[in-house]
Amino acid sequence: MNKENNQKKAKPAGNLSLAAGLLKGLNNERAALDQRAQPEEQVQTPPRSRPSAAPEPIAAIAIPVSTATPNGNRFQIPIADCISNPYNPREFYPESKVQELALTLQRDGQIEAIKVTQLPQYPGKYVLIDGERRLRAKRSLGEKFIDAELRSDTTPAELYSIAYRANNDHERQTIFDDAIAWRRVLEERVFVEQNALAERVGRDKAYVSKVLSLNALPRPILERMAEFADRVGLQAAYFIKLIFDKAGEEQATRNLSAVIDGKRTVRQLELAVRDLTTPSSSGKKERARYHQRYDFKTDGQSFGQLKTFPDGRINLELIEIPATQQEALADKLKEIVESFTNAKPSASTSV
Protein backbone atom coordinates (compact mmCIF):
# COMPACT_ATOMS: atom_id res chain seq x y z
CA MET A 1 0.00 0.00 0.00
CA ASN A 2 2.81 2.35 0.89
CA LYS A 3 4.57 1.39 -2.30
CA GLU A 4 1.46 2.22 -4.35
CA ASN A 5 1.11 5.59 -2.62
CA ASN A 6 4.77 6.37 -3.28
CA GLN A 7 4.27 5.64 -7.01
CA LYS A 8 1.26 7.98 -7.14
CA LYS A 9 3.27 10.71 -5.49
CA ALA A 10 6.15 10.20 -7.94
CA LYS A 11 4.01 11.04 -11.00
CA PRO A 12 3.59 14.73 -10.21
CA ALA A 13 7.31 15.01 -9.64
CA GLY A 14 7.97 13.57 -13.10
CA ASN A 15 5.52 15.97 -14.71
CA LEU A 16 7.11 18.87 -12.91
CA SER A 17 10.54 17.76 -14.09
CA LEU A 18 9.31 17.67 -17.70
CA ALA A 19 7.68 21.10 -17.44
CA ALA A 20 10.79 22.50 -15.82
CA GLY A 21 12.88 21.12 -18.63
CA LEU A 22 10.65 22.68 -21.27
CA LEU A 23 10.63 25.98 -19.40
CA LYS A 24 14.39 25.91 -19.13
CA GLY A 25 14.70 25.23 -22.83
CA LEU A 26 12.39 28.12 -23.68
CA ASN A 27 14.33 30.42 -21.38
CA ASN A 28 17.59 29.38 -23.04
CA GLU A 29 16.10 30.04 -26.49
CA ARG A 30 14.81 33.44 -25.40
CA ALA A 31 18.17 34.32 -23.87
CA ALA A 32 19.90 33.38 -27.10
CA LEU A 33 17.54 35.58 -29.13
CA ASP A 34 18.00 38.49 -26.73
CA GLN A 35 21.74 38.06 -26.92
CA ARG A 36 21.73 38.26 -30.71
CA ALA A 37 19.73 41.50 -30.56
CA GLN A 38 22.41 43.18 -28.37
CA PRO A 39 25.24 45.26 -29.91
CA GLU A 40 28.26 43.19 -30.79
CA GLU A 41 30.45 44.61 -27.99
CA GLN A 42 27.85 43.54 -25.36
CA VAL A 43 27.46 39.94 -26.58
CA GLN A 44 28.48 37.37 -23.95
CA THR A 45 29.50 33.77 -24.49
CA PRO A 46 26.57 32.08 -26.27
CA PRO A 47 24.58 29.38 -24.44
CA ARG A 48 25.92 25.85 -24.68
CA SER A 49 22.64 24.71 -26.19
CA ARG A 50 23.36 26.72 -29.40
CA PRO A 51 26.55 26.75 -31.45
CA SER A 52 28.27 30.10 -31.70
CA ALA A 53 27.60 31.99 -34.94
CA ALA A 54 29.95 34.34 -36.77
CA PRO A 55 28.96 37.98 -36.19
CA GLU A 56 27.33 39.79 -39.10
CA PRO A 57 29.40 42.47 -40.93
CA ILE A 58 29.29 45.81 -39.17
CA ALA A 59 27.39 48.43 -41.12
CA ALA A 60 29.39 51.24 -42.74
CA ILE A 61 32.57 49.13 -42.96
CA ALA A 62 33.37 47.91 -46.46
CA ILE A 63 35.05 44.54 -46.95
CA PRO A 64 38.00 44.89 -49.36
CA VAL A 65 37.50 43.27 -52.76
CA SER A 66 40.53 41.06 -52.24
CA THR A 67 38.99 39.44 -49.13
CA ALA A 68 35.47 38.94 -50.53
CA THR A 69 34.31 35.60 -51.87
CA PRO A 70 33.29 35.82 -55.57
CA ASN A 71 29.81 34.96 -56.83
CA GLY A 72 27.37 35.41 -54.03
CA ASN A 73 29.02 37.01 -50.98
CA ARG A 74 26.92 39.99 -49.88
CA PHE A 75 28.72 42.87 -48.21
CA GLN A 76 28.69 46.66 -48.03
CA ILE A 77 30.79 48.93 -50.22
CA PRO A 78 31.18 52.72 -50.34
CA ILE A 79 28.99 54.28 -53.01
CA ALA A 80 31.84 56.68 -53.79
CA ASP A 81 33.96 53.71 -54.90
CA CYS A 82 31.39 52.41 -57.41
CA ILE A 83 31.97 52.79 -61.15
CA SER A 84 29.16 52.34 -63.66
CA ASN A 85 29.27 49.37 -66.00
CA PRO A 86 31.18 50.59 -69.10
CA TYR A 87 29.09 48.14 -71.16
CA ASN A 88 25.72 48.79 -69.54
CA PRO A 89 22.88 47.82 -71.93
CA ARG A 90 20.65 50.50 -70.42
CA GLU A 91 21.37 54.10 -71.41
CA PHE A 92 18.32 56.04 -70.25
CA TYR A 93 17.34 56.42 -66.57
CA PRO A 94 14.32 58.75 -66.24
CA GLU A 95 14.67 60.75 -63.04
CA SER A 96 11.07 60.01 -62.07
CA LYS A 97 11.84 56.26 -62.04
CA VAL A 98 14.97 56.81 -59.95
CA GLN A 99 13.03 58.86 -57.39
CA GLU A 100 10.27 56.24 -57.20
CA LEU A 101 12.88 53.60 -56.38
CA ALA A 102 14.54 55.92 -53.86
CA LEU A 103 11.26 56.22 -51.94
CA THR A 104 10.87 52.43 -52.00
CA LEU A 105 14.42 51.87 -50.70
CA GLN A 106 13.89 54.46 -47.99
CA ARG A 107 10.70 52.75 -46.87
CA ASP A 108 11.56 49.05 -47.28
CA GLY A 109 15.35 48.97 -47.37
CA GLN A 110 17.54 47.31 -50.01
CA ILE A 111 16.31 43.77 -50.61
CA GLU A 112 18.47 42.80 -53.59
CA ALA A 113 22.21 43.51 -53.65
CA ILE A 114 23.84 45.09 -56.66
CA LYS A 115 26.40 42.98 -58.54
CA VAL A 116 29.96 44.23 -58.88
CA THR A 117 33.32 42.98 -60.09
CA GLN A 118 36.91 44.21 -60.05
CA LEU A 119 38.93 45.17 -63.11
CA PRO A 120 42.68 45.79 -63.20
CA GLN A 121 42.21 49.19 -64.86
CA TYR A 122 40.19 50.38 -61.81
CA PRO A 123 42.28 49.37 -58.78
CA GLY A 124 40.46 49.60 -55.46
CA LYS A 125 37.14 50.32 -57.18
CA TYR A 126 33.98 48.30 -57.72
CA VAL A 127 32.72 48.08 -61.29
CA LEU A 128 28.96 47.67 -61.51
CA ILE A 129 27.52 44.76 -63.48
CA ASP A 130 23.88 45.12 -62.43
CA GLY A 131 22.16 47.70 -60.20
CA GLU A 132 22.75 51.14 -61.73
CA ARG A 133 19.24 52.34 -60.84
CA ARG A 134 19.59 51.16 -57.24
CA LEU A 135 22.95 52.92 -57.02
CA ARG A 136 21.50 56.18 -58.35
CA ALA A 137 18.55 55.94 -55.97
CA LYS A 138 20.82 55.36 -52.96
CA ARG A 139 23.05 58.23 -54.03
CA SER A 140 20.05 60.56 -54.34
CA LEU A 141 19.15 59.73 -50.73
CA GLY A 142 22.59 60.84 -49.61
CA GLU A 143 23.56 57.36 -48.40
CA LYS A 144 27.22 56.36 -48.29
CA PHE A 145 27.07 52.56 -48.54
CA ILE A 146 25.20 49.98 -50.60
CA ASP A 147 24.84 46.20 -50.34
CA ALA A 148 26.72 44.35 -53.08
CA GLU A 149 27.65 40.90 -54.32
CA LEU A 150 31.09 40.34 -55.83
CA ARG A 151 31.39 38.35 -59.05
CA SER A 152 34.45 37.15 -60.92
CA ASP A 153 33.22 38.21 -64.38
CA THR A 154 35.79 40.48 -66.00
CA THR A 155 35.53 40.38 -69.80
CA PRO A 156 33.57 43.08 -71.66
CA ALA A 157 31.28 40.43 -73.19
CA GLU A 158 30.48 39.08 -69.70
CA LEU A 159 29.81 42.56 -68.32
CA TYR A 160 27.37 43.25 -71.15
CA SER A 161 25.69 39.84 -71.28
CA ILE A 162 25.03 39.53 -67.54
CA ALA A 163 23.63 43.06 -67.33
CA TYR A 164 21.50 42.41 -70.43
CA ARG A 165 19.98 39.28 -68.87
CA ALA A 166 19.50 41.00 -65.50
CA ASN A 167 17.60 43.86 -67.13
CA ASN A 168 15.30 41.36 -68.82
CA ASP A 169 14.62 39.79 -65.42
CA HIS A 170 13.74 43.18 -63.91
CA GLU A 171 12.52 45.94 -66.23
CA ARG A 172 13.91 45.39 -69.68
CA GLN A 173 15.92 48.14 -71.29
CA THR A 174 14.21 49.83 -74.26
CA ILE A 175 15.15 49.46 -77.91
CA PHE A 176 16.62 52.97 -77.61
CA ASP A 177 18.96 51.77 -74.86
CA ASP A 178 19.84 48.85 -77.13
CA ALA A 179 20.60 51.18 -80.04
CA ILE A 180 23.30 53.04 -78.12
CA ALA A 181 24.65 50.02 -76.24
CA TRP A 182 24.87 47.86 -79.37
CA ARG A 183 26.74 50.56 -81.25
CA ARG A 184 29.18 50.85 -78.33
CA VAL A 185 29.92 47.12 -78.06
CA LEU A 186 30.43 46.89 -81.83
CA GLU A 187 32.71 49.94 -81.95
CA GLU A 188 34.81 48.58 -79.10
CA ARG A 189 34.93 45.12 -80.71
CA VAL A 190 33.25 43.41 -77.78
CA PHE A 191 31.40 41.56 -80.55
CA VAL A 192 33.27 41.42 -83.83
CA GLU A 193 30.20 41.98 -86.02
CA GLN A 194 26.40 42.21 -85.98
CA ASN A 195 25.82 38.47 -86.45
CA ALA A 196 27.72 37.67 -83.25
CA LEU A 197 25.80 40.35 -81.37
CA ALA A 198 22.46 39.15 -82.77
CA GLU A 199 23.24 35.60 -81.69
CA ARG A 200 24.19 36.71 -78.18
CA VAL A 201 20.99 38.75 -77.63
CA GLY A 202 18.73 36.23 -79.39
CA ARG A 203 17.62 38.51 -82.25
CA ASP A 204 17.86 38.22 -86.03
CA LYS A 205 20.28 40.39 -87.95
CA ALA A 206 17.56 42.52 -89.61
CA TYR A 207 16.15 43.47 -86.20
CA VAL A 208 19.59 44.39 -84.86
CA SER A 209 20.33 46.44 -87.99
CA LYS A 210 17.08 48.39 -87.69
CA VAL A 211 17.70 49.13 -83.99
CA LEU A 212 21.26 50.28 -84.73
CA SER A 213 19.97 52.67 -87.41
CA LEU A 214 18.20 54.69 -84.69
CA ASN A 215 21.59 56.09 -83.68
CA ALA A 216 21.18 58.54 -86.57
CA LEU A 217 18.55 60.37 -84.50
CA PRO A 218 19.56 63.28 -82.25
CA ARG A 219 19.95 62.50 -78.56
CA PRO A 220 16.90 64.57 -77.47
CA ILE A 221 14.63 62.58 -79.79
CA LEU A 222 16.04 59.28 -78.54
CA GLU A 223 15.57 60.37 -74.93
CA ARG A 224 11.93 61.30 -75.57
CA MET A 225 11.33 58.02 -77.36
CA ALA A 226 12.80 56.14 -74.40
CA GLU A 227 10.58 58.08 -72.01
CA PHE A 228 7.48 57.00 -73.96
CA ALA A 229 8.74 53.58 -75.03
CA ASP A 230 5.34 52.07 -74.24
CA ARG A 231 3.86 54.18 -77.07
CA VAL A 232 6.75 54.30 -79.55
CA GLY A 233 7.65 50.91 -80.96
CA LEU A 234 10.49 49.96 -83.27
CA GLN A 235 8.48 50.42 -86.48
CA ALA A 236 7.30 53.90 -85.49
CA ALA A 237 10.80 54.87 -84.38
CA TYR A 238 12.28 53.59 -87.63
CA PHE A 239 9.84 55.61 -89.79
CA ILE A 240 10.54 58.71 -87.69
CA LYS A 241 14.23 58.10 -88.34
CA LEU A 242 13.52 58.02 -92.09
CA ILE A 243 11.52 61.26 -91.79
CA PHE A 244 14.48 62.79 -89.96
CA ASP A 245 16.80 61.69 -92.78
CA LYS A 246 14.61 63.28 -95.46
CA ALA A 247 12.95 66.27 -93.78
CA GLY A 248 15.06 67.14 -90.73
CA GLU A 249 14.72 67.27 -86.96
CA GLU A 250 11.67 69.55 -86.80
CA GLN A 251 9.51 67.23 -88.90
CA ALA A 252 10.76 64.19 -86.99
CA THR A 253 9.93 65.84 -83.66
CA ARG A 254 6.44 66.81 -84.82
CA ASN A 255 5.69 63.29 -85.96
CA LEU A 256 7.05 61.86 -82.71
CA SER A 257 4.76 64.15 -80.71
CA ALA A 258 1.81 63.02 -82.83
CA VAL A 259 2.63 59.36 -82.13
CA ILE A 260 2.97 59.97 -78.38
CA ASP A 261 -0.36 61.82 -78.33
CA GLY A 262 -2.06 59.01 -80.25
CA LYS A 263 -2.69 61.21 -83.30
CA ARG A 264 -0.52 59.34 -85.78
CA THR A 265 -0.29 55.63 -86.53
CA VAL A 266 2.57 53.57 -87.91
CA ARG A 267 0.71 53.35 -91.23
CA GLN A 268 0.44 57.13 -91.41
CA LEU A 269 4.15 57.44 -90.71
CA GLU A 270 4.84 55.01 -93.53
CA LEU A 271 2.73 57.09 -95.92
CA ALA A 272 4.51 60.25 -94.81
CA VAL A 273 7.85 58.63 -95.61
CA ARG A 274 6.53 57.56 -99.00
CA ASP A 275 5.39 61.11 -99.78
CA LEU A 276 8.82 62.42 -98.89
CA THR A 277 10.54 59.78 -101.00
CA THR A 278 8.48 60.15 -104.21
CA PRO A 279 9.33 63.79 -105.06
CA SER A 280 13.05 63.25 -104.42
CA SER A 281 13.13 60.21 -106.72
CA SER A 282 11.55 62.18 -109.58
CA GLY A 283 14.08 64.95 -109.18
CA LYS A 284 11.39 67.66 -109.17
CA LYS A 285 10.27 69.93 -106.35
CA GLU A 286 6.63 69.66 -105.40
CA ARG A 287 6.25 73.43 -104.90
CA ALA A 288 6.82 74.03 -108.63
CA ARG A 289 3.91 71.79 -109.66
CA TYR A 290 0.84 72.78 -107.67
CA HIS A 291 -1.42 75.64 -108.79
CA GLN A 292 -2.95 76.79 -105.49
CA ARG A 293 -2.45 75.88 -101.84
CA TYR A 294 -4.58 76.43 -98.76
CA ASP A 295 -3.11 75.85 -95.29
CA PHE A 296 -5.35 74.62 -92.46
CA LYS A 297 -4.31 76.15 -89.15
CA THR A 298 -5.53 76.27 -85.57
CA ASP A 299 -3.98 78.52 -82.94
CA GLY A 300 -1.24 79.33 -85.43
CA GLN A 301 -0.29 75.64 -85.80
CA SER A 302 -0.63 74.09 -89.25
CA PHE A 303 -2.38 70.72 -89.38
CA GLY A 304 -2.72 70.24 -93.13
CA GLN A 305 -2.78 71.57 -96.69
CA LEU A 306 -5.13 71.57 -99.67
CA LYS A 307 -3.39 71.84 -103.06
CA THR A 308 -4.79 72.12 -106.56
CA PHE A 309 -2.76 71.24 -109.67
CA PRO A 310 -2.96 72.46 -113.28
CA ASP A 311 -3.64 68.92 -114.49
CA GLY A 312 -6.91 68.78 -112.51
CA ARG A 313 -5.71 67.00 -109.38
CA ILE A 314 -6.55 68.05 -105.83
CA ASN A 315 -4.32 66.93 -102.97
CA LEU A 316 -5.55 67.10 -99.35
CA GLU A 317 -3.16 66.24 -96.53
CA LEU A 318 -4.19 66.44 -92.88
CA ILE A 319 -1.93 65.53 -89.95
CA GLU A 320 -2.33 65.10 -86.21
CA ILE A 321 -6.03 64.27 -86.50
CA PRO A 322 -7.04 62.25 -83.40
CA ALA A 323 -7.82 58.64 -84.20
CA THR A 324 -11.27 58.98 -82.63
CA GLN A 325 -12.16 61.73 -85.14
CA GLN A 326 -10.56 60.33 -88.28
CA GLU A 327 -13.47 58.10 -89.27
CA ALA A 328 -16.07 60.86 -88.83
CA LEU A 329 -13.95 63.28 -90.85
CA ALA A 330 -13.42 60.72 -93.60
CA ASP A 331 -17.19 60.16 -93.85
CA LYS A 332 -17.79 63.88 -94.24
CA LEU A 333 -15.12 64.20 -96.93
CA LYS A 334 -16.61 61.29 -98.86
CA GLU A 335 -20.04 62.90 -98.62
CA ILE A 336 -18.70 66.19 -100.00
CA VAL A 337 -16.86 64.48 -102.88
CA GLU A 338 -19.88 62.32 -103.79
CA SER A 339 -22.17 65.36 -103.68
CA PHE A 340 -19.84 67.29 -105.97
CA THR A 341 -19.52 64.36 -108.38
CA ASN A 342 -23.28 63.87 -108.60
CA ALA A 343 -23.88 67.59 -109.18
CA LYS A 344 -21.20 67.95 -111.86
CA PRO A 345 -23.14 66.59 -114.91
CA SER A 346 -26.13 68.90 -114.36
CA ALA A 347 -23.78 71.86 -114.02
CA SER A 348 -22.16 70.98 -117.35
CA THR A 349 -25.56 70.71 -119.03
CA SER A 350 -26.71 74.11 -117.84
CA VAL A 351 -23.52 75.67 -119.16
Rank of each mutant, 00 (worst) to 15 (best):
T341M: 12
S49P: 01
I180N: 01
Q121V: 05
A258S: 13
V185K: 00
I175E: 02
I319Y: 14
K332L: 11
A31V: 01
E199D: 13
A179K: 01
G14D: 11
M225L: 11
F309W: 08
Q110C: 03
W182Y: 15
N5H: 08
S96K: 15
A258N: 06
T298R: 13
T45Q: 03
A68N: 01
T324Y: 15
A53S: 11
G283T: 09
P70M: 09
A37I: 07
T117C: 13
K144R: 13
K205D: 12
E327G: 06
A13V: 13
L256H: 02
K334P: 02
W182Q: 02
K263R: 15
H291K: 15
R264N: 04
F296H: 02
S280D: 10
F92W: 11
E335Y: 14
S209K: 15
R134S: 02
A237I: 02
A229F: 02
F303M: 00
S213A: 15
R30E: 06
S257W: 07
A20P: 00
T117D: 12
R133M: 14
A258V: 04
T117Q: 05
K284G: 05
L150K: 01
L22C: 12
A198I: 05
I79S: 06
L18Y: 11
L256Q: 00
L23M: 15
R267M: 07
S161T: 11
L22G: 12
N73M: 13
G21A: 10
F239Q: 02
Q301W: 09
